[in-house]
Design a protein around this nucleic acid. Structure first.
Length: 491
RNA sequence: GGCCCUAUCGUCUAAUGGUUAGGACACCACGCUUUCAAUGUGGUAAUCGGGGUUCGAUCCCCCGUGGGGCUACCA
């Protein structure tokens, strides 16, 4: 695979760390990067930032890859897709970071620090007591070369820290926020190489973005405060800066960054709950971005066509599941019965339905397509089909009717049902027969159909009663009518 | 505490130096209807506060306030 499709120099990346599942916030960041890449005929790269040994969670990478695949966000280069700038997993690039850290030391932009964890903790405590900003006191910033050489030779544990300027300002031109100014004097001498030899995010991210020729760094707003460090690194290496775009955060309904405490925030969990990738993508795209038109429903392709960073908002957006529910229902209603039934099959199997024959499931699903919010609803809304639900006898009687009339009407229902042959026991023909009886006998529609519905569904709210009867079939329908009659007679 | 970002209906958002401040979700009402949905129509609901600039600020500036992020040998 050479660079056959490459038409521009736009290269963006999604760089998650494998510390768990891909959450909604990460998916949104990935989406915006992907949209930007596709819109501009650029490359979208997946890079795994596993520089923290302690937080590594096994299976994370698989989860991330699977979630991106489900969402339809394909990447051009990544851990499992070579592209000439690999490897795409940071733990496989350790030597690169170490060399770059050495270069910074030679250039006097970084220094060895031998401070112990204990001293650092103590320092932090003192600073907290004095109510001053917690930061490194630069204790090792000016050690003599002899001293350093000696301690290094003695294999004394150490880290490498950034030698940040004492003063001056950095101006960041953010594509979403405009100019943002920071004073160097407030910025800490961050660790860039840990004592275990691994780099921190600050170093690895910048080095890789440069080496992988990333043109636009599109990431969440939480990274804005550390951008001055990144700028300092680019400048120290003598590299050109990429463009920066800091996305607004997605927040929980309680306020604050969306977190695990807010229920399902794993992207794949939404899939399992029965949300369609198209709906989820559509929804999160609208969280922080909008096309400046009144269009609300977008396919992935339409999003690509409409997307641009200058239409991205600056303020955070609350993740409100109600609108997602609305969109998901809308997408479900737009699906063909055939396709929808295929998608629902797994849910019926999981619920151990006896009959999962495709044609049968299509009939069952058709009953509830208009009321489904998630795919899982196909099962929960049709429980009563699989097995009769016990109900309070009283609900058989319509509000404007009495017990004797209801009993009489149920018997009428039975007679009508009995008179329909097995093969023509369909929603359509039943409807014709029932409406005719109602007309002939001058019955009140509701008073006949209400108990019929309750008898078949066990509930006062249900899909169309004739559709239910059609799915249930003649014998099961009659069985349920008899149960209802029996209940009323023994009230 | 320090640094930074941010501010239009409950929520997601549109718009403008002069507008009846628009749309969507949610909510309410009505229509359709055998119920519930779906669907259609209508409705309730917002420019955080105080100063400026201006003939006029929701819009521009400043100060507050609210919300959020960062402040690790986490990313």
């Amino acid at each position: 695979m050479k660079t056959m499709n490459k038409k521009t120099n736009v290269r963006v990346r999604f760089a998650p760390s494998p510390t768990g599942f891909l959450h909604i916030g990460g998916l949104r960041t990935a989406l915006f990067n992907w949209l930007f890449a596709r819109k501009n005929d650029g490359d979208f790269i997946l890079r795994i930032e596993d520089t923290d040994q302690n937080r590594y969670v096994k299976g994370s990478v698989d989860n991330i890859v699977e979630a991106l695949k489900w969402a339809g966000l394909d990447y051009d280069e990544g851990p499992d897709k070579a592209g000439g700038f690999g490897p795409y997993v940071q733990s496989e690039r350790l030597k690169i970071y170490q060399n770059h850290a050495d270069e910074l030391i030679k250039k006097d932009k970084a220094y060895y620090c031998f401070c112990t964890a204990e001293r650092l903790a103590e320092l932090k405590e003192q600073q907290a007591a004095q109510k001053i900003a917690p930061r490194y006191d630069r204790h090792c910033r000016d050690l003599s070369e002899d001293d350093i050489a000696k301690r290094l030779a003695a294999k004394e544990p150490h880290v490498i820290r950034l030698k940040m300027p004492d003063d001056g300002i950095v101006i960041i031109n953010d594509l979403i926020r405009g100019q943002v100014e920071f004073s160097y004097r407030y910025i800490d001498d961050s660790v860039i190489i840990k004592s275990d030899g691994f780099p921190t995010y600050q170093l690895a991210n910048v080095v890789d973005d440069h080496l992988m020729k990333i043109s636009h760094v599109i990431r969440a707003e939480e990274w804005l405060p550390s951008t001055p460090k990144h700028v300092f690194l680019y400048q120290s290496f003598g590299w050109d800066l990429p463009e920066f775009a800091h996305l607004p955060l997605i927040m929980s309904p309680q306020g604050g960054k969306l977190s695990k405490r807010d229920g399902a925030v794993s992207s794949l969990e939404y899939r399992d709950l029965g949300y369609l990738a198209e709906a989820l993508i559509n929804f999160i795209a609208l969280l922080g971005w909008n096309p400046k038109t009144e269009q609300e429903v977008f396919s992935l392709n339409e999003l690509v066509n409409e997307f641009s960073l200058d239409k991205v908002n600056k303020s955070g957006a609350i993740f409100n599941v109600e609108k997602l529910n609305y969109l998901n229902g809308k997408y479900i209603r737009s699906l063909s019965l055939d396709k929808l039934s295929d998608l629902c099959l797994a849910y019926f199997q999981k619920a151990s339905w006896k009959n999962t024959d495709k044609e049968y499931l299509k009939k069952v699903v058709s009953l509830v397509q208009d009321r489904m919010v998630t795919l899982a609803d196909s099962v929960s809304l049709t429980q009563f089909i699989a097995k009769p639900i016990d109900y309070d006898t009283k609900i058989l009687i319509p509000k404007k009717s009495k017990e004797p009339e209801t009993l009489k009407n149920l018997k009428t229902c039975r007679d009508v049902a009995l008179g329909v042959g097995e093969p023509e026991f369909t929603s359509e023909s039943l409807k014709g027969k029932f409406l005719k009886i109602i007309k002939d006998k001058k019955l009140k529609t509701g008073n006949l159909l209400w108990p019929f519905r309750v008898a078949l569904s066990g509930a006062t709210a249900s899909p169309d009663v004739f559709d239910i009867a059609g799915v249930l079939g003649k014998s099961e329908s009659l069985k349920r009518i008899d149960i209802a009659i029996n209940k009323l007679e023994n009230i």
